[in-house]
Design a protein around this nucleic acid. Structure first.
Lengths: 224, 224
DNA sequence: CGGTATCCCTTGCGATACTG
DNA sequence: CAGTATCGCAAGGGATACCG
């Protein structure tokens, strides 16, 4: 499947690497921050270690990812993106935003990972909302992500932040509707869909600063 | 391979459809213009008809493509993108630009298709160069594409245009270097890499209006 | 033209186990 | 923790033939 398409075309070259199973999600996770093998394995539920190894090698060969030694001996192996790989960030964000349009409610077996939550924050960020530096800690089910943003600058991460956030939000699956603007901040709080710690109006500001639209057709017409 | 990833994540949803073999290239071709089954088959060298059918069905189910009846009886079946599918255009352009950065010279067996050439034109278009409406007809080996552009507006197509272009360019593989700005218009003409019909300076303007950068490392370091 | 229908066969995924 | 090794299986891709 890693086969080439035999076309002199940038998209074909991209597809030959990123079209591999798990590759896009792996790059997504690496784009949040450098990660260890085990973190990657845990963040991609279902991927076998052998496949993870193979993908990492392929990404290395393609100049997208690289091994980094982070600590003493080889205990500190860490995978990160190269400069070339980092350029994929905005592209994957756009692709994720596109895919998210038809994604309103989690399927019964859908999992939310911390890295995908962080990526969602990054992809929905609106540069013109936050006029002063604001930090967020967001919990969506078992997933945790944080953001530190101000004007055109944003930084996100997966897992608990190492600082105390200005605003902490505990949310359930309804978070999707809030980010889409289909549920107001006050509704979210009143219904218990979100629990907020922080200044008054913080959730309203949050939902404007991180907007992931929904193009609802509710469900795609099933023609089967 | 069409398996889902079980994640509530826009990128994961996108990957489950677009990660399929041939899917990205198929959408690319459809994004240029609606096409018939045979045109799609011809434009994707190597794809079996059965796989093409399967992909088209999957794209239909995902709400990305749709069958359209273009003529009398069923002789006029045509596949096109839905509104949702059309939103992928700019995203795929970005992905193609990313992939093209490491693509300097065609591999011996690389093919150039008209649709990929048209997509390349669209992806490299610089909105601030052409101050008046200009039309181009571009030949790169066996591939033919055209563009009609002015300011922020651009329209591209695969195959010979149905109008007489202001500028006609016959180019070889060296075209890649011209688009990257690694070869000047005058060099291209002098060396015979490009043959131009049109006003003086037309090729220089063209190479500024359609810019596809090259991030060269020549070849990615092979660490095998 | 616009597909269906087979068929084989590779590949690479997923599972599990195990090593430095 | 950071992988390697093995293995079986199923899916799906590619080729080819054929039908409406």
């Amino acid at each position: 499947m890693s086969k080439d398409y035999g076309q002199f075309c940038g998209l074909a070259k991209a597809a030959s690497v990123l079209g591999e199973r798990w590759a896009l999600l792996l790059v997504r996770d690496l784009s949040i921050s450098p990660r260890r093998f085990k973190e990657l394995h845990d963040g991609l539920p279902g991927i076998p270690t052998s496949v993870l190894t193979t993908r990492l090698r392929e990404l290395e060969t393609a100049g997208i990812a690289q091994r980094q030694i982070a600590g003493p001996t080889q205990a500190g192996v860490v995978y990160g993106l190269t400069a070339y790989g980092k350029q994929l960030g905005p592209v994957l964000d756009a692709l994720g935003r596109w895919g998210a349009q038809r994604m309103s409610t989690p399927e019964p077996d859908d999992v939310i990972t911390s890295a995908s939550l962080a990526a969602a924050l990054r992809s929905g960020y609106q540069p013109d909302v936050l006029t002063s530096l604001t930090t967020y800690e967001l919990h969506a089910g078992p997933a945790i992500a944080w953001a530190r943003a101000h004007g055109g600058q944003i930084e996100v991460g997966a897992g608990a932040p190492d600082f105390t956030a200005d605003v902490t939000i505990l949310a359930g699956p309804q978070l999707r509707l809030l980010l889409a603007g289909h549920m107001s901040a006050s509704e979210a709080i009143a219904s218990g869909a979100a629990e907020v710690t922080g200044p008054d109006g913080a959730l309203a500001t949050f939902s404007r600063a991180f907007h992931v639209p929904l193009d609802d057709f509710e469900t795609v017409t099933d023609t089967s």
